[in-house]
Design a protein around this nucleic acid. Structure first.
Lengths: 346, 346
DNA sequence: CTGAAAGCGCTTACAG
DNA sequence: CTGAAAGCGCTTACAG
C-alpha cells in the first residue's frame, strides 16, 4: 500500500491516462463519457474497462470550464436565523432537494444569507454565474434580493409563489388556499362558530392564501368575518404564542383557532393551556404543514399536510426546465387534512 | 435595460476584459486578484477600477482547474434520515459551518448519504478530489465509509471523536465526559440516589463518554453502579421514550434520569407523564445538548449545554489546517450546565 | 466512427 | 514590478 502523505493528494488519472490504457484518442474517451456521439461498441468497451482499471473520475472543474455549466445549484435561505431552524419544514425541504439533485448528478450548495453582508455576498456569488440556478426558500415579496437575482438572469425556482413576481419567477407551492379552507370547514363541521386565525406574514403567498382560505370557508357557511379574530405571526412558535395572547384578550369567546403553521399552533397551545382553556374541549386548534412538530405537541395537532418532500422534488425538476430555457411556471401541489387530538373528527 | 432572454446567460467579463480596461497584461490582473506578488500601486488601482467598472468576478472553475483546489467543502451526513431532522442540533451545526466557510470564501456542499447507494456515490465523489475536505457529522466507529475516505487521503474533520480513528481523523468534540458528570452530580446534590441513564449508541464517542461521565459521578459519590438503570437509545425522541418505558419496569424506584440527548429526554418526559410520575417532583430529568428543544418541553429541561456553534467554527478552522497538511488533532470544547424546571437547583 | 486541434478562464514559474 | 507563455483537464466543432 502506498503511504498517504497528508496534504499531498495522489495524482489522479486524467482522460489521457484512460485513453492510453484503452488505446484510443482522448476525444473518444470524452465521447463515451458523455454518450452523445456514436462510438463503436469495441471502443466503448475498452474505454469502460480502462476507466474501471484506472479508477478514473472526471474533473468537474475542467468539465465546467469547457461546458460553461457549473453542475451545481444553490439552496438559498434568506430568513433571519431564528426562524430557520425551529421548524422541521426547512430540513424536510433541504433533504428532498439534496435527494432530487443527487439523482441528477447535481451538487447542492447551501447558502445562508441572513445578515445584510451575507445577502450582498450571496447576490454577487449567484449573479456571478457560479451556479446553474437557485432554489429559493420562503421568499418575501419586497425583498430587493429578488430583483437583483432576476435582473442578473439567474434561473430561479421558489418555494411558494413570489408575490409580485408570479410571471417571472417559477414556483412550487402547496394549495394553501383550499388547504386552509378545508381546515376551517373541519372546524365548522365540528360546530365551531367563533373561529380565530393566526396568519403568516402578509408579504408571503402562504400568509395571504391561507388567510384567504379561512375567509372562504367562513363566507361559504354564512359566518361573519370578524377582524378581531385575525392576528398575524411570522410562522414561529413565539409569534404564535404572542398572537394567541392577543386573540384571547380581544376575542375571548373564540371556540377554535386555525394557525397557518404548526409552529404557531404549538405556541398557541401553550398559551391556551396557561389560560386554563382545554384543547379541544374549550377551544379546538388546527395547524398547517404536518411538520415533525405536529405529532409531538400536547395534544397532537390536527393539521393540513404540506407535502414538502414532493415540493422539493418538483422544484428541482422545474429548475432544470428553467435552466434549459423554458418559460416560468407555477406548480401547485394538493394538501390533505390530518386529524389528531387537538381537533378530533366531529 | 438589456432584455434578459431566459436560458441565455449574459456574456460575463473575463480577466482579459479587465486587463484591457486597465491597460495592463492579464497576468497582472491575476496578481492583484490573488495579492501574492508585488504589483505597483498604480497598477493595483487601475485594475481595481477596471474590476468595478466591468463587474468582473473570477470564474471559480477556471481557478480550480489552474490551482488544483476546489474551494469547496462537503458537509457529510450519514445518519439514517429519521434521525437527522428531528433534532435541531444538526441544523445548528450546519448553520455554523455555513457561516465559518463563507467567512473563508469556501463553498459548502451538502451531501446526505443515508442509503447504501447514496453512500457509495458519496465515497466516489469525495475520493474523486471534487472537494478540498469533508466535515463529518455523527460518525459511527464501524462505518466502512470511514476507512474508504481515510484510504483515499481525503482531509476530514469529524464532529465528535471517531472511535478507532483517534489518531487518523481530526475531530472537535464537547467535553462529553465531564459534562455528563456535572449533570449527574447536579442530581446527586439534589438528593437523588437512584439515578438512571439513557445513553447514546455505543459505537459513538458521545454515547460512550457520556455514559462514562455518569459512572464517574456515581463512583465519586459512593453510589452503586446498577446495570438495570442503564438503557441505550439512538439519540432520538422515540428511542428515549422506549428506553424510559424499559427503565420504568426494570427499575421502578428510580428518582432521576440523565438522558444523553435532549431529544431522548423529551421522549422520557412523555413516558413519565403517561406513567403518572411528576417531573421534577417524583423524578428529576436532565438532558444533554441544550438544543432548541430543551426550552420548549413540558417542563423545560435542565441540560448540559453543547456549544455546537463553537464546534462548527473549530471544525472549519481545523479542516483548513488539515488541508494545509498539518497532522490530525482532537479539540475538546467545554460544556456547562443549564438549569431549568425538569430539575431545578436543590 | 475517430483524431488533431482549438478553446474554456484562470495561475504561475520564467524571463526580463 | 510586469509580459509572454505554458498548462490545468475537459468538450466540441472540424475534418476525415
Amino acid at each position: 500500500m502506498i503511504p498517504v502523505v497528508p496534504g499531498t493528494p495522489r495524482k489522479r488519472p486524467t482522460i489521457r491516462d484512460v485513453a492510453r490504457e484503452a488505446g484510443v484518442s482522448y476525444a473518444t474517451v470524452s465521447r463515451v463519457l458523455n454518450g452523445r456521439d456514436w462510438v463503436s461498441p469495441a471502443a466503448v468497451r475498452s474505454v469502460r474497462e480502462a476507466i474501471a482499471r484506472t479508477g478514473y473520475t472526471a474533473n468537474p472543474h475542467a468539465r465546467s470550464l469547457a461546458t460553461g455549466r457549473s453542475g451545481s445549484i444553490a439552496f438559498l435561505l434568506t430568513e433571519p436565523q431564528h426562524l430557520l431552524f425551529e421548524d422541521p419544514n426547512f430540513s424536510v425541504l433541504l433533504r428532498g432537494a439534496a435527494q432530487a439533485l443527487s439523482d441528477r448528478s447535481l451538487t447542492l450548495i447551501l447558502m445562508i444569507a441572513s445578515t445584510p453582508a451575507e445577502r450582498s455576498r450571496a447576490v454577487a456569488y449567484l449573479s456571478g454565474g457560479h451556479v446553474d440556478g437557485v432554489l429559493l426558500v420562503s421568499p418575501h415579496s419586497g425583498d430587493p434580493l429578488l430583483a437583483q437575482l432576476v435582473d442578473a438572469g439567474v434561473p430561479i425556482v421558489a418555494c411558494g409563489r413570489v408575490l409580485g413576481y408570479e410571471q417571472t419567477i417559477s414556483s412550487v407551492a402547496a394549495d394553501d388556499r383550499s388547504g386552509a379552507r378545508s381546515a376551517v370547514e373541519h372546524l365548522i363541521a365540528a360546530g365551531c362558530t367563533r373561529i380565530a386565525t393566526i396568519t403568516g406574514p402578509p408579504d408571503m403567498a402562504g400568509g395571504v392564501d391561507r388567510l384567504q382560505g379561512y375567509q372562504d370557508a367562513l363566507t361559504a357557511h354564512g359566518l361573519p368575518l370578524d377582524p378581531s379574530r385575525v392576528e398575524h405571526g411570522d410562522w414561529s412558535r413565539e409569534s404564535g404564542a404572542a398572537a394567541m395572547q392577543t386573540l384571547l384578550t380581544r376575542a375571548p369567546a373564540l371556540d377554535a383557532v386555525f394557525a397557518a403553521s404548526d409552529a404557531m399552533a404549538a405556541g398557541a397551545l401553550r398559551v391556551l393551556r396557561a389560560a386554563g382553556r382545554d384543547v379541544p374541549g374549550d377551544v379546538r386548534v388546527v395547524g398547517f404543514d404536518d411538520s415533525g412538530l405536529a405529532a409531538t405537541t400536547e395534544p397532537p395537532l390536527t393539521t393540513v399536510r404540506h407535502p414538502l418532500d414532493r415540493v422539493a422534488d418538483e422544484m428541482v425538476r422545474l429548475l432544470t426546465d428553467v435552466i434549459a430555457g423554458r418559460t416560468p411556471l407555477s406548480i401547485t401541489v394538493p394538501t390533505s387534512l390530518v386529524v389528531r387530538a387537538s381537533s378530533p373528527a366531529p
